[in-house]
Design a binder for these strands. Structure first.
Length: 475
DNA sequence: AGCATGTTGAA
DNA sequence: TCAACATGC
């Protein structure tokens, strides 16, 4: 009577519906599995499975899984690891363990949903598969406007989510009965080469070799550290509404994004903590709004295929980007000669994270002043951010690029110098992150005024394309 | 979740 | 001369 729980982006014990169900329904051993997944593309060019993790996120998962394994062991649950195609691995693991139940937390990206549905279908004859909520505040298919469609606009969506009841958080489950009950089967799977040690599933491959040390200086992955951070909310949430745009202030934001990315915290836990904090109403509102943005992005991603690399506004296919390796390299290396952007790119490279205000400015420079395709910048962030999120990252890039569905009626181009004087008035952020003595161009690699005019001219082609689309020629 | 430009009115 | 404000993109 074995129970299998397949962990994915839910690396925690508390408020974990799938884990709770696995433990409470178990009459026998419970085994937890985490797979370093590869993604498959079928003959119709459909992707199956989640987007392959970027290097910084892989580092985080490696550390977080290291922290999680002994905590699961305390519950009597071994955590086992595999690498490769999830469908094949699940087939092998289920064939050997022959679990009565398989539990997992739902994923919401269309490609991941396709894979999970296929696996569920395939396993149906051999075991009972249960998928659970846990990674979102609300299931995307339950959030409907009065007209029955899914929400396209953030504000009404956020109001609808805010009005939902927040049911009590789940505690960490109690230990299970037979901690060693599956040992023989697990040994077989190891001998067959299906299971590996955490160190051997490639999470630390392909990252810069010094990254391991530098990232560890700035972050402590794992559910316990995440909960400490959230428990300290009365220390950092007061003043958030006013200070959240100041990247030079160390505690101006919560830095909780990587915790939500890998599920060390559930969004429900974050929301509950905010609502019960002693902070002022405007601070609670400003921060929960950020949680709702995450939620909104996931709902959009669920309902729309190809958001990851295709513009939401089709007319943006006409935007005349001019790929230029020299500019891309300067941007990635934090050598554009523009202080706020270079500071941000160095913060990113050194810590795997960038303040959101600076992300917007860096992305604006990249897509507009530099005329580089947003997909290329998005891919760099995907590789280097420890919080790289399948929904948030591409949708935010699309928002900055102007290709998002609910973009402003004008073509927004940030002025990075103005943004620096406004949000980093004493240059404390810039000085903190740009290495001393770094060779940087004295004259910025793009002229801000000139490139602004060129970007506006480029946008005219999008306007022309959308006008042509709105008034199609009659034949 | 913006910028540039122009106008106004007080110093 | 330079803020604060208003407007169009």
């Amino acid at each position: 009577m074995t129970t299998l729980i397949w962990l994915r982006d839910d690396l925690r014990l508390a408020d974990h519906p799938a884990l709770t169900a696995a433990c409470t329904g178990a009459h026998g051993p419970v085994v937890a599995l985490w797979i370093h997944e590869t993604r498959r593309t079928d003959e119709d060019n459909n992707r199956h499975g989640p987007r392959p993790l970027g290097a910084a996120t892989r580092w985080w998962y490696h550390r977080s899984l290291q922290q999680l394994a002994p905590r699961l062991a305390d519950l009597g649950i071994p955590l086992i690891f595999a690498r490769g195609d999830a469908a094949r691995i699940m087939r092998r693991v289920v064939d050997t363990l022959q679990p009565t139940f398989v539990h997992w937390t739902r994923r919401y990206a269309p490609a991941a949903c396709r894979l999970d549905a296929a696996i569920k279908q395939e396993l149906k004859s051999r075991t009972e598969v249960h998928s659970h909520p846990g990674s979102l505040l609300a299931e995307p298919w339950l959030m409907r406007t009065a007209s029955g469609s899914h929400y396209q606009v953030f504000t009404p969506f956020s109001h609808a989510v805010a009005d939902l009841p927040l049911t009590p958080l789940l505690p960490e489950p109690s230990p299970v009965d037979e901690p060693d009950g599956a040992a023989t089967d697990l040994a077989t799977l190891r001998e067959d080469g299906v299971l590996h040690n955490l160190e051997d599933i490639g999470l630390l491959d392909d990252g810069p070799d010094w990254w391991e040390d530098t990232l560890a200086q700035h972050w402590e992955p794992g559910e316990l550290a995440a909960r400490q951070q959230l428990d300290a909310i009365d220390g950092w949430l007061p003043g958030y509404a006013k200070r959240r745009d100041l990247p030079g202030e160390e505690t101006s934001t919560s830095r909780i994004s990587p915790r939500l990315r890998c599920g060390e915290l559930s969004p429900r836990q974050a929301l509950a903590a905010a609502r019960s904090s002693t902070a002022a109403g405007e601070d609670i509102a400003a921060w929960t709004r950020q949680l709702y943005w995450r939620e909104f992005c996931w709902h959009l991603l669920h309902h729309r295929e190809h958001l990851e690399d295709t513009p939401m506004r089709p007319a943006f296919e006409e935007f005349p980007y001019h790929p230029d390796d020299h500019l891309v390299r300067a941007w990635r290396q934090g050598r554009t000669g523009i202080d706020l952007v270079d500071g941000g790119m160095w913060q990113l490279w050194q810590t795997g994270w960038m303040h959101n205000r600076v992300r917007m400015v860096a992305a604006s420079l990249f897509t507009k002043n530099m005329l580089q395709p947003w997909q290329d910048g998005e891919q760099w962030f995907w590789e280097t951010l420890v919080d790289a999120d399948e929904a948030n990252n591409p949708i935010s890039w699309q928002w900055v690029a102007g290709s998002g569905a609910d973009a402003a009626p004008y073509f927004r181009i940030f002025n990075p110098e103005l943004q620096r004087t406004r949000f980093d008035p004493h240059s404390s952020y810039v000085k903190r992150w740009i290495p001393e003595g770094l060779a940087r161009p004295v004259v910025p690699v793009v002229d801000l005024a000139e490139s602004r005019r060129e970007a506006l001219a480029a946008y005219e082609q999008v306007r022309a394309a959308s006008a042509a689309h709105a008034r199609p020629q009659r034949g």
